[in-house]
């Protein structure tokens, strides 16, 4: 009974982690950017979806769409206003650009966080679930919203896989992650590929944020922990490796759920962080890292 409970709850939270981390790792794999405003964009999506339904009184579906659209816009702003100017700057030496992008996205994330707290307070907000009610799965009472969350996450990840592996645009993205110079020699505009990747990222982060808002709720305080959790999942899985991130998301999700059920909810995140430290010692490139 307890084992089944852990299996079900762990799956939902792991799927959500996986979706959140996929976009994060995609951006890194393709353009080498570690986007530290990731948590802020997820929270922004959830808060926008909440505000749309509780202030503008639109229905759940439109609310969720507004949330995802907000994340898409925020993601493109992050690229055009923060990342691209740094990458194109002639005054910043090339070898320092990575650190500038890190700092720039971190500050941008904090700005979004403070704006959310200023306009909507730092109290948690929850998005009205699209499906409500519970079902019994072999005696375990499971919210339908939890099943919905897991299904949407898996579906979106599958669509992403198809997009990357089966479409022309996806192949260009894949090529850019392997050899950016080669892609430009083939006559493709690298900036266009980056814009596409940031747009995909925005949609992924938006869906993850809205689902998180429905499943657990978010507040401006969640910004830091969300970025940190995506970051550690991606590092654990191997920077830039999408399949590594997926595996790592499930490892972290189940480890947390096991700890919460079998040890104490208060120590939930500790074993996953210890594992991260251990992996860094034994296998610095992560589970499926290339380098």
């Amino acid at each position: 009974m307890l084992a089944l409970q852990i299996l079900i709850d762990g799956f939902a939270i792991s799927a959500l982690y996986a979706l959140g981390a996929t976009g994060f790792t995609l951006i890194f794999g393709v353009s080498g950017v570690l986007n530290l405003s990731h948590g802020a964009i997820m929270v922004l999506a959830a808060v926008a979806a909440w505000a749309a339904s509780s202030i503008l009184h639109v229905n759940n579906y439109i609310g969720a769409t507004i949330g995802v659209a907000t994340a898409l816009v925020a993601s493109l702003i992050t690229y055009f206003a923060v990342v691209q100017p740094i990458q194109r700057s002639r005054r910043i030496p090339n070898e320092e650009k990575e650190i500038f992008v890190l700092t720039g996205t971190l500050l941008w994330g904090i700005m979004i966080q403070e704006l959310i707290a200023y306009f909507f307070t730092n109290n948690a907000k929850t998005v009205l679930p699209i499906v409500e009610g519970v079902v019994e799965i072999l005696g375990v009472r499971t919210p339908q919203n939890e099943i919905f969350t897991a299904l949407v996450c898996c579906l979106v990840i599958a669509l992403l896989w198809l997009l990357v592996n089966r479409t022309r645009m996806g192949k260009a993205v894949l090529a850019a992650s392997m050899n950016p110079r080669g892609v430009t020699l083939l006559g493709l505009e690298l900036t266009n590929i980056y814009v596409v990747v940031w747009a995909i990222y925005g949609i992924l982060a938006g869906i993850a944020g809205v689902l998180l808002g429905m499943f657990l709720g978010v507040s401006s305080y969640s910004v830091g922990p969300l970025t940190a959790s995506a970051f550690s999942i991606v590092v654990l899985g191997g920077l830039g490796s999408v399949s590594g991130s997926l595996i790592a998301a499930f490892v972290v999700g189940y480890l947390e759920t096991l700890t919460a059920y079998l040890v104490s909810p208060a120590y939930r995140t500790i074993p996953a962080l210890l594992l991260l430290v251990a992996v860094m010692y034994i296998r610095p490139q992560g589970l499926l890292g290339r380098r």
Binding site: D9, I13, L216, G217, Y221, S222, P225, T257, A260, Y261, S264, P265, A266, R268
Partner: peptide
């Protein structure tokens, strides 16, 4: 429980 708990299911 810790005040930064987000998942209360367990």
């Amino acid at each position: 429980f810790s005040p930064d708990t987000t998942d209360f299911t367990p």
